[in-house]
Simulated scan of single mutants.
Amino acid sequence: MNRFLRSPYAKTAGAFLAGVLAVAAVLALAGVLHGVPGLSRSGAAAIADAQAAELPGLGPNTIADIVSRVGPAVVRIDTTVQGERYVDPFFNDPFFRHFFGDQFRIPMQSEERRGLGSGFIVSPDGYILTNEHVIAGADRIEVTVAGRDKPYQARKVGADHDLDLAVLKIDAGNDLPTIPLGNSDSVRVGDWVVAIGNPYGLDHTVTVGVISAKGRPVTVEDRRYKNLLQTDASINPGNSGGPLLNLNGEVVGINTAINAQAQGIGFAIPSSTVKAVFDDLVQKGGVSHPWLGVYLQQVTEELASYFGLQDLSGALVASVVSGGPAEKAGLRRGDIIVRYNGSAVNNPNDLIELVGGTAVGSQVEIEFIRGGERKTVTAVIEAKRP
């Protein structure tokens, strides 16, 4: 007989193996080992069951039902930008361009650049929401609607660079499929969401994930996004402008940005932001952003010591725009703003958020510190200059 089987460890090993098999059998019977081949049902079925349990009345085909119902309202947006290609005799050297600029660049030929994005129809007569960066600078915009024979020429109705939102219009009758805007404020971290778009030109691609965070500030080039929804639903180039849907098939966000350094992290503009500015985009062609006319700086320990402050709270006015609301109200460089219309200002971001939530034309009280003394002025918030 094998020496191992006669050794003192044989009983222990046999007991351990028997215990593992017993636990596996119990787990399989209890349905815990979903997705393990040969043991129980698939992980996808488990997820569907969980969704149905949490949302009474929704069956295991919830995602498929959503896609079938609202998917036809998701459109593909192709753009064309005309330009010229140049030859630079200085090989684009920044030293020479500093002195000579572009005066020696030689135009060689016309160049056509193409772009791709997504969007979705919000009215039966052809109004479409998308990102501003999808159609920025485009000379030609084509919209492809599922089930239609050919693309439609679209015109830009309104756009806003800072919010990265745009409204397009196509003339394709009055019976187009639509997707309703939902309430992004009620979305919770962990809620299931569905993204539909055209990543890499793969039309009507569907991905599923959850809301992984809310209120994310993200900076991409010259855009400073605020209050974005973060999701792990796959979002790739070409998804921009497409809808992020809740399990009722309502839009809770517009897919906007991805994190190039991370996999599985995407961001969407909340539908509450879209609702607040949609009428202005359609009726006025743009959005009036509130503006105070100051450049701000964080209060550091050195600055606090210089100004004789007890703490680092407040927003230091680094400069004042000539003729702006702040200058008209009497604010100067070096003032430290500590309250805005009754709300505490602990840092520059606080003031930016407070001003951003103020209606253009409103009168606001601004409390600040100058020369160790607290002062108060009244300013009238104006629309941001182009």
Rank of each mutant, 00 (worst) to 15 (best):
R85I: 12
S313I: 00
N61G: 05
L303Q: 03
D171P: 00
T300D: 15
R114A: 14
A329G: 09
L168M: 05
S271V: 02
A318H: 15
A25C: 12
S212G: 07
E142H: 09
F278G: 00
G182C: 10
Q363N: 14
I106L: 15
L202A: 01
E250P: 12
S240A: 08
V299F: 06
Q261L: 11
I269V: 15
G209M: 08
P348E: 05
L165V: 04
D65R: 10
A379F: 02
A383W: 04
A22P: 01
T130E: 14
A383D: 08
E132W: 09
I121N: 04
A46L: 14
L281N: 00
F267C: 12
G342N: 11
R113F: 12
H133Q: 10
P180L: 02
K328F: 06
R370H: 12
V364Y: 07
V145E: 09
P180A: 14
L168H: 06
H161Y: 11
L163V: 00
V355Q: 07
Y9W: 14
I135M: 03
I47E: 14
D171Q: 09
I66H: 09
G266T: 05
L5A: 15
P180R: 07
G264S: 11
R3D: 13
S42M: 03
G361W: 07
G59W: 09
G190T: 01
V320Q: 05
L354N: 02
R114H: 15
A315T: 01
G286I: 03
L296W: 05
K375S: 02
A45F: 04
A166S: 12
V193H: 06
P60V: 11
A379E: 04
L55M: 11
S362T: 13
I254S: 06
W192L: 08
T358V: 10
G147M: 03
S184T: 02
F91K: 00
R85K: 14
A276N: 15
I265M: 13
G43D: 05
Q103R: 15
